[in-house]
């Protein structure tokens, strides 16, 4: 550190004298370069003033006493800046630390999501989940049980960022610890509701849609807890319908009951589940309509389920100027023809 300071002092003397001799652009450029170096070496503003004064005294041994004293005065004035600068530095370090901690947490959170997409016979599954910032408040889950039923869950935890992520880990463990034998969607939600109600703050809640796809019978049973409705595409009618399941969000009422719905899925039909980050996509003109989503899906219907969700995401991302405001999760289950 001392060496570095001496070297800087030496350099400052050189460039200052050069400038005083030539007074040209080149000299000012050197000053800018020096300024960067001073920052790199964490030299405080008052040290720069004192550097200037000592160089001045060397080059002009007979500068007026008043001018000399004025630099002492300036030095005092700069001390405040120096302290602010130090604080800024330590905040920057602290921020870097926090960011790397959040990175670790975000990586850990990724491991909560299923690592692969199930590939049951006759069913084409695609899913994409993208957080608006590092941590996500969206959650999805697959269970493929021995009765050839594929359980799918999509959930949105209120809010974003770290609190939502913490809550999501609770949901994951709650779902993992549900009884082995398969629960009907409505019972599963009632069970989860009890866990959430007892474990979250009064202003937190979780919305969820849970469905069970019977791969042999091609029926889809589902129930919802205040979750954004999805869509059902009927190949025969070539139409989209809203797939809604009325029910109160998880975590509000201690004893909540959920209604169960069922659909018979014909070849070529598909089910779209989503989080409100998909439908609450906001452009400069305002919120997009739900029809806009079905239009985008329709444009890519000839592709595989995974390609469909990828394309819809990219187009919605483009519409929003590549700036997601909310976590985005989109899932498609299509019965193959």
């Amino acid at each position: 550190m001392g060496d570095a300071y001496l070297r800087l002092q030496e350099q400052y003397r050189k460039i200052l004298n050069q400038y005083l001799e030539n007074k040209n652009e080149q000299g000012l450029y050197h000053a800018q370069q020096f300024s960067k170096k001073v920052l790199e070496n964490q030299i405080s503003p008052e040290e720069v003033v004192s550097l200037h004064l000592s160089t001045l005294e060397e080059s002009f041994p007979d500068i007026p006493k008043g001018a000399q004293d004025s630099f002492e005065f300036l030095l005092e004035v700069m001390i405040g800046y120096g302290l602010a600068y130090q604080e800024h530095q330590s905040l920057k370090d602290r921020q870097r630390e926090l960011e790397s901690e959040i990175d670790v947490a975000a990586n850990m959170q990724q491991t909560f999501l299923p690592s692969g997409i199930p590939e049951p016979e006759d069913l084409d599954v695609g899913v994409l989940s993208v957080p608006a910032s590092k941590m996500s408040g969206d959650y999805y889950h697959f269970v493929h049980d021995e009765n050839d039923c594929l359980g799918v869950a999509i959930a949105d935890i209120i809010g974003k960022g770290v609190p939502a992520a913490l809550c999501m880990s609770m949901i994951k463990y709650a779902m993992d610890s549900l009884p082995e034998q398969r629960l009907q969607p409505a019972d599963l939600l009632a069970n989860l509701n009890r866990v959430v109600e007892q474990n979250v703050a009064s202003n937190m809640f979780i919305t969820m849609m849970y469905g069970s796809y019977d791969v042999r019978a091609h029926t889809f049973q589902y129930a919802g807890a205040g979750h954004e409705p999805g869509f059902y595409y009927s190949a025969e009618a070539d139409e989209f319908e809203e797939l809604s399941a009325k029910g109160i969000v998880l975590g509000i009422k201690r004893h909540a009951e959920f209604r169960e719905y069922q659909r018979v899925v014909a070849p070529g039909d598909f089910i779209v589940l989503l989080s409100d980050g998909v439908t609450e996509c906001r452009t400069e003109q305002g919120f997009i309509e739900r029809e806009e989503i079905t239009r985008l899906i329709r444009n890519h219907m000839h592709l595989s389920a995974q390609e469909m969700v990828n394309h819809v995401f990219h187009e919605l991302e483009k519409l929003q100027g590549f700036q997601l405001r909310d976590d985005f999760t989109l899932m498609i289950l299509r019965r193959e023809v």
Binding site: I158, A201, S202, N203, F205, D276, E280
Partner: peptide, 15 residues
Amino acid sequence: IDSTGLGIFIGALKS
């Protein structure tokens, strides 16, 4: 209103 906003109302209702 987003979901955080809804959360405020739920907290207020419970209170």
